[in-house]
Amino acid sequence: MPKRMFLAILFLLGLTVACARRENSASVLANLSIMPGTVGTNDVRVQLSHVDNTPVVGAQVKVIGNMNHAGMEPSIASLTETAPGVYEGVIELTMPGEWFAIVEVTLESGETVELELPLPEVKRGE
């Protein structure tokens, strides 16, 4: 019994190291800018295009800002399309530091795409 348990643990340890992860390839490209990049209310602008460089129109876009620290409250912004492929809105950044954004795009076809983008370091406000 102990021998079998020991082998089972060795097997699980082996699996832990051996299990590779699948990389997702994005079908949508995004360019994100955020102004002024300080604590408080910020304007967020996302430009979306397909891989053939045509703009992504008519999509529903949500930006979720989060800090690179587990356990922080995320900031969420729903964007509206202001020009073909350009989506804008406001997001509240709650503290200085390292942030990143998850851009959730729901295409007209119903397909959803999730993109992960770094944000410039958020500075203290005035």
Binding site: I9, L12, L13, L15, T16, V17, C19, A20, R21, N66, M67, N68, H69, A70, G71, M72, P74, F100, E116
Partner: peptide, 29 residues
């Protein structure tokens, strides 16, 4: 022990971002 294995697995092979990885969420929260 199984959770620890998942932490090691996700930590070594998953997202390098803390809120997207169980290796940082489960131990530190």
């Amino acid at each position: 022990f199984l959770v620890a294995l998942v932490i090691v697995w996700d930590g070594l092979t998953g997202s390098p971002l803390a809120p997207r990885n169980l290796a940082t969420i489960l131990p530190w929260l």
